[in-house]
Design a protein around this nucleic acid. Structure first.
Lengths: 140, 140
DNA sequence: TCCTAATTGAAAATGATTTCTGATTATAGC
DNA sequence: GCTATAATCAGAAATCATTTTCAATTAGGA
């Protein structure tokens, strides 16, 4: 199996195309949230040229089936995509270098309990992003 | 003092204009996140006609100085604005009726401690939104 | 009241994302 | 391997929330 994502795509009955593999390789290579356009630029560098709409479509598809995580930038109206290697979806995002680090802490259990108890509602999903500066950016 | 926001605006050295007051009144009247366009529509109903750019400008300004809270919808690429009456910025947002309720629980202290200790980074800001169905929508 | 800077409206611009169309390509079945 | 076919693709054009521009108006201090 030339590529680690080959089997993953097949399992999800998505065709294994050079574009899809390139996108996944780029995102798997750096633990950073990238915009569709940044992924596209990196593809050109790797001489896997693709149309921007293709990049958008694939990122959307791959995040829809759970391979990638998609977030919105809270200030600019942009989508960012990230390839997590584990299943923990809470991140510390450095506002300088955009590096992503995992947060071991997840307060969702307490939140779920709180919503159920005092609001009598039901939690469907949640979004938690913590922004700051990472160790390296604080030093530099 | 004809209007409760009069003094607030003066304190922030923002001119007290009919449009600004109308926007604040609309948002203060319902505990719901509204899009700029929804605010604009409600202004027309109140016969305080304003241009859409004016609504955008004011919402941006008012959220910049902390009177309003601005979030991005995680799926559609829209801005939502909300007028909090207290200072607690964690919300439970009903995905059916869009009503906003406060969450007493805030895990930021623990997160801050975690980031400082194990990542050696510094938290600058955070975004937590919990989506679900409120009591009424669960019943209806 | 007058002056000046802030605010506003209307139209045009922006820019990320999506849609459309007609090629191209991966893969299942032979 | 070969073929059929459904998925995928590129490029151009469209979409649409938001922003900018600029001339006209207005709020608030002097």
């Amino acid at each position: 199996m030339a590529n680690q994502f080959d089997a993953l795509l097949r399992r999800l009955s998505l065709k294994v195309t050079p574009k899809r593999l390139a996108i996944l390789e780029i995102l798997a290579a750096e633990p950073i949230y990238l915009t569709p356009e940044e992924v596209w630029t990196r593809m050109k560098r790797k001489s896997t040229r693709a149309g921007l709409p293709t990049v958008y479509r694939n990122l959307e598809e791959l995040s829809a089936c759970g391979i990638l995580i998609k977030i919105v930038h809270p200030d600019r109206r942009l989508y960012y995509y990230f390839c997590p290697n584990d299943h923990h979806h809470h991140h510390f995002v450095c506002i300088s270098c955009r590096k992503v680090e995992d947060l071991n802490f997840c307060g969702l259990d307490s939140i779920d309990r709180e919503v159920r108890k005092s609001l009598k509602g039901a939690v469907v999903s949640h979004l938690m992003q913590v922004y700051g500066r990472c160790k390296e950016c604080l030093a530099g």
